[in-house]
Amino acid sequence: MGKYIVRRLLQMIPVVLGATFLIYAMVFALPGDPTAGKCGERECSEAYKAAFYEKYNLNDPLPIQYGKYMANVVQGDLGENQYGNDVAGELGDRYLVTGKLALMALLWEGVIGIAAGALAGIRKGGFMDSLVLVSTLFLISIPVFVTGVVSQFFLGVKWGVASVTVSADATVYELLLPSFVLGSLSMAYIARLTRTNLAENLRADYVRTAKAKGLTPQRTVGLHALRNSLIPVVTFMGYDFGALLGGAIVTEGIFNIQGVGGYIFRGVNNRDGVAVVGAVTVLVVAYLLVNLLVDLLYGLLDPRISHD
């Protein structure tokens, strides 16, 4: 197990280097003058240009530039963005918000998705099954920006039961609706995944054994069948959490959430290379770590998987 983790961590090094180098190369090797537009209508002065090039090591060949950048990253220095703000500090603040939003979305997905899927799967073809199938199809077909804007209007503006926007503090109450909207699509997939797996496992031999042992239907379904059905569901949720950590541009935009998605989006729009590369570097590492956690969790959930 320990060996496995070390091996996986070592495997992450080339992946992180490769991914960040590609991003770095793409952002900084784009044609055009990086100082263009920095000084309004006029062209920037030679002195400013020289200072700018010096600061970002732009006179060095690309691999050297990247090397110098990574040397700083390893020390926790992601550089300054266009506005002279510390990227690491800004990202830290935004990751707190994004992390909170992602966790809450995951909670919605898990609780409602699994419950709905279990109810549907117990009696395939029954009323609950049809209800869940139709409502999940509904959620899957509607784009997030529609769910977001419509629920914001009705729940937030018209009926006043939810917060319309999210302040810089991003309290749990404020994030209730946005996280639901963000998690709604995966919630639908989780419900369907749970339903299919449970319905299949209910026909498994070990469920027949559980009945023959004289267990209650609650124990047979809720423990023996559901425990097996949740293996793919938890795995899906793990990968989904990794994806959610990348930020949610649309949801963040609708509810004015100061998260990572908006940060990257604005960075790309403004050609703020330092901000984009910094954010994406953190994102790649976070995603890889979550992936590793999911794989470890998978081994715990299914004893037939071994990490030797």
Binding site: D205, Y206, R227, R304
Partner: peptide
């Protein structure tokens, strides 16, 4: 009480 044919699938794997 009852025992079944294929114990691998009749026992819960997890």
């Amino acid at each position: 009480s009852m025992i079944f044919q294929d114990a691998l699938s009749a026992l819960n794997p997890v």
